[in-house]
């Protein structure tokens, strides 16, 4: 069972010399395919922007409008008056940031324990961590809702935050990373100097793995920002909505303006796009480094 999940994951550290890749001339059609793929990725996002700025009529005009119009301020204004969207952005930011920081810390610490410390039951416990990755939580949403209801957390943000503070995938990923980047000699030297494992983690391990923890936090942020099913179940009142649920509420107002939901989607995606401009390269590197699951 373990190797079903584990096997393909870690790519060995790249060789020192420029590795990777076929040699020889790059054919023109290589670029053709890649440009088509890039356009296919960009176009729906661009189209979201066009429709939210030119109105829903953009596509029905002939030829279709392909450049943004001047309607954006009006539609954005309409988004903010139809649903409490500023509040939704705030809620999403609180939830996603807390989860990102929480996951980065809990997973780094647990990953360190599994990678570098010896304790009875370690292997069995690690197999349990790996096994939990294969069972999606969706199928038990009904009892999950019952628990949240018992705790009195229905329609609160902690219902979203607390269950997301640790992730099996994150632990697995940090363990791989720590085993491959931190030498045992280094830690043994610290041991001989009398450092406790807690001190070793904060003084030696964490500074080294901070970039990886950052990427993990980033993935947690994106996943949590975009989550739909669970917030849709536990959030009841509009002032508690996250942006994704607010989009759904906007979509229910289709009769107001067809561009409304598109403008909401645009506003909900914009923060991630801005973050992506700055950290996209690190995310690509992180995913290629073994973050294989979203």
């Amino acid at each position: 069972m373990t190797d079903t999940v584990v096997a393909p994951v870690p790519t060995p550290p790249l060789p020192k010399r420029r590795s990777g890749g076929r040699v020889g001339r790059v054919r023109w059609w290589t670029y053709l395919f890649l440009i088509i793929a890039a356009l296919a990725c960009i176009f729906p996002l661009y189209w979201m922007f066009v429709v939210s700025s030119a109105g829903a009529g953009a596509a029905s005009r002939l030829p279709p409008v392909l450049i943004p119009g001047g309607d954006l301020p009006r539609l954005v204004d309409l988004v903010f008056t139809t649903v409490p969207f500023v509040r939704a952005l705030f809620n999403s930011a609180v939830v996603a940031t807390t989860i990102a920081v929480g996951q980065a810390l809990t997973c780094a610490l647990a990953g360190f324990a599994f990678a570098k410390l010896r304790f009875p039951g370690r292997n069995v416990l690690f197999i349990i961590v790996v096994l939990t990755m294969t069972v999606p939580s969706q199928l038990s949403v009904i009892p999950q809702y019952m628990i949240i209801s018992e705790l009195g957390w229905v329609n609160t943000l902690q219902a979203l935050i607390v269950p997301g503070l640790a992730s099996a995938f994150g632990i697995f990923w940090m363990r791989q990373h720590i085993s491959s980047t931190i030498s045992d000699e280094l830690l043994q030297a610290a041991r001989i100097d009398g450092a406790s494992s807690w001190q070793i983690f904060w003084k030696i391990v964490f500074p080294i793995i901070r970039p990886a923890a950052f990427v993990l936090g980033l993935l947690g942020f994106v996943t949590s920002w975009n989550d739909f099913l669970w917030p849709f179940i536990v959030l009841k009142s509009p002032d508690m909505y996250t942006v994704q649920i607010a989009i759904k509420a906007l979509q229910n107002n289709l009769f107001v303006d067809l561009g409304l939901a598109m403008a909401g989607s645009f506003l909900a995606t914009l923060p991630l796009l801005i973050v992506f401009v700055f950290v996209g390269r690190r995310m690509v590197a992180g995913i290629m480094d073994g973050a294989f699951k979203g």
């Binding site: 729906p44 994106v222 739909f228 759904k248 989607s265 645009f266 995606t269 796009l273 979203g294």
Partner: peptide, 9 residues
């Protein structure tokens, strides 16, 4: 880019 776009959007 598609990966960071929410399913709802």
């Amino acid at each position: 880019l598609p990966y960071i776009t929410s399913v709802a959007a």
